[in-house]
């Protein structure tokens, strides 16, 4: 499934806070432990990326000054950028500045990183939010409405969703592009109007990238919805509702769907996280001026400060959303909340 390849996510740790947890203090302790864990993960991401992206000082010097740069020039360059210090010192220095909002300059030293990254981050977030807003309700509605085992519609959906789930983003992207942009000419092939064009152009530019991302989201949410509705449909309280003579429609939406909501919150969070990864590819298919495109360009140019800022930013979003999902799931599920309340 294209969903979790790129962003396979650790399942929520259902066995972590519960059972022995007593009262508010214990919950606060569990929460602060999760917070510490999240912070550690973000640090780890920045640490790994810093060392992986670290090119030798000479390499960087040659990239900026040109191949013919003399030894003295290279040394002067390294000294002026602080590249002659030990790596770990460079990392701590970078981290210290990054945390305080100073994200450094690009490779050539001509442009600060922050004003480059923030608008791209805004576009990426827009794309992700737009996608969630249409794809999640559709997936849930289909999942609940057709939640019965067997039957031609269920079987047909199953096949379609399984196939869609297995397609990489760029395969879906190209297919929609050829069908809707090249053949039918409904939408532009490239979405670089985002952030520049007229409002109408901007809206049109979002359609194909969002559709592509949504194709990754819908099968996942649909599958979880279907499974959890089926499970709660066979639960005793549902049978009781049926026996009371309530109509099927009402039983499904009012009774079965409610208890199906818990795994759904988790699934939605996982998909937001997936979106932050999927965008990297989709943005490069449709030339969306977002973080993914900027990241690839930065990597291609060996511009490690920009690449690092983007990776840490995306990584932080990834971790924070995972944490939020954990908290919400714990809050929604009384069993995980322990004996509190």
């Amino acid at each position: 499934m294209s969903v979790s390849t790129l962003v396979s996510v650790a399942e929520p740790q259902a066995d972590e806070p519960p059972r022995t947890v007593r009262g508010r203090a214990a919950r606060a302790r569990a929460l602060s432990r999760q917070l510490a864990m999240a912070l550690l993960t973000i640090l780890l991401i920045s640490f790994i990326s810093f060392f992986a992206l670290n090119h030798s000082a000479d390499q960087l010097g040659k990239n900026v000054l040109g191949r013919q740069a003399s030894r003295a020039q290279l040394d002067a360059f390294a000294a002026s950028r602080g590249l002659d210090r030990p790596l770990i010192v460079q990392y701590l220095d970078w981290l210290w500045h990054f945390v305080r909002g100073d994200w450094g300059t690009n490779l050539a030293g001509t442009q600060p990183v922050k004003p480059l990254v923030l608008p791209a981050f805004a576009h990426t977030s827009e794309l992700a939010v737009i996608t969630l807003v249409w794809s999640v309700p559709i997936a849930i509605a289909v999942g609940v409405a057709v939640a019965r085992r067997g039957g031609p519609i269920d079987r047909g959906l199953f096949v379609v969703m399984t196939v869609l789930a297995a397609l990489p983003e760029f395969v879906v992207g190209l297919t929609v592009m050829i069908a809707l942009a090249v053949q039918l000419r409904w939408f532009p092939v490239a979405s670089n109007a985002i952030g520049l064009g007229t409002p109408a152009e901007q809206v049109k530019a979002f359609v194909l990238p969002s559709l592509t991302l949504g194709v990754g989201v819908v099968p996942y949410i649909w599958r979880i919805t279907r499974a959890s509705v089926l499970e709660s449909l066979s639960a005793p309280y549902t049978r009781a509702a049926v026996l009371r003579g309530l109509r099927r429609h009402r039983v499904i939406w009012r009774h079965a769907f409610r208890s199906a909501a818990v795994p759904l919150v988790n699934a939605i969070a996982i998909n937001i996280i997936y979106l932050m990864g999927g965008v990297i590819i989709v943005e490069n298919v449709f030339a969306v001026p977002g973080l993914g495109r900027l990241l690839l360009a930065a990597i291609a140019q060996g511009d490690s400060h920009t690449a690092l800022a983007i990776i840490v930013l995306l990584g932080a979003v990834f971790v924070i959303l995972g944490l939020l999902a954990d908290v919400v799931v714990t809050y929604l599920n009384p069993r995980l909340r322990g004996s509190a309340r």
Binding site: L6, V7, A10, L44, I45, S49, M276, G277, S304
Partner: peptide, 13 residues
């Protein structure tokens, strides 16, 4: 907990 694509991008870069 590490995001695979991001780590892969950093390492390959």
């Amino acid at each position: 907990t590490l995001p695979p694509l991001l780590i892969a991008l950093a390492v390959i870069a």
